[in-house]
Amino acid sequence: MELTPAVIGQMLVTGVLVGSIYGAVAMGFSLIFGVVRIVNFAHAGGVVWAMYAVFLVTSGGVLGPYLATALVIPVFFGLGYLLQRALMVRIADMTEEMHIVFTFGLLLVLTYLAQFAFGHDVRFLASSERHLAFGGIVVQREILVGGGVAALSALGLHVALARTWLGKAIRASADNRRGAVLIGLDVRALQRVAVAVSVASAALAGGLLATFTTLYPLRAFELAILAFLIVVLSGIRSLLGSFGGGVIVGVLEGAGTLLLSPSLAQLGIHALIFAALLIRPEGLWGRKEAV
């Protein structure tokens, strides 16, 4: 393919949009780590289950994918609340290694339960075949909507955490748990809300992804590795940083796929993250931004 400005522009726009959704996945991942101090690999399992839910509802012809997503989000919010209440709280005081083992276990359960239930066929929703073109750049409608919604909700989450009382309370309990307890915050309840928000964000990202990408159970592993690496790349304590990391990875993936091949692009991304980790061991955005 010839590298005209339009092709490059299209690659960049698509990369940023898809990367925004990756960023949303990574943000949910960092939110849990920031507030509960648990590395939740199972986050991507949630994303894939949301994808299946949206896929099944939509292909049943009942609702459109966006309405289906809107329906799935509150359900996942409730599941996240239960997850924290029933499981995560039990492992909170253990070491980071134990957290990794536990949430990896949960990821395995979620992934292969999906495989058992839905088989390992690759599925996808029919595209609307509608594209938006401006200045020679053509973008599929689902990608534009998906990326736009993901970016807006990432921004919304950031603003909510920065401005609202609940957001400030969650940040306070993430920053200094004992201090938060001392000033009368119900830290456990705040943690449950934060995990619920995180799992709900997984549902949102999953619903958006389902509109334009393929779906298979092992996608959960790929997304888990991707989200983990984005978060490690950008520094896990920073929510907006994670979003930015997602955008960077999205653009790199687009560029690599365009210039090389999808699998070479993956190799390049991994090599870059590898180098970035060694150069900035606390992530690209370091510790400067708190949750």
Partner: peptide, 16 residues
């Protein structure tokens, strides 16, 4: 798939 689900459950149970 079932084997992997059981492996996952074992991991979680071992930690708990």
């Amino acid at each position: 798939a079932l084997q992997q689900v059981v492996y996952g459950l074992i991991l979680m149970l071992v930690v708990l």
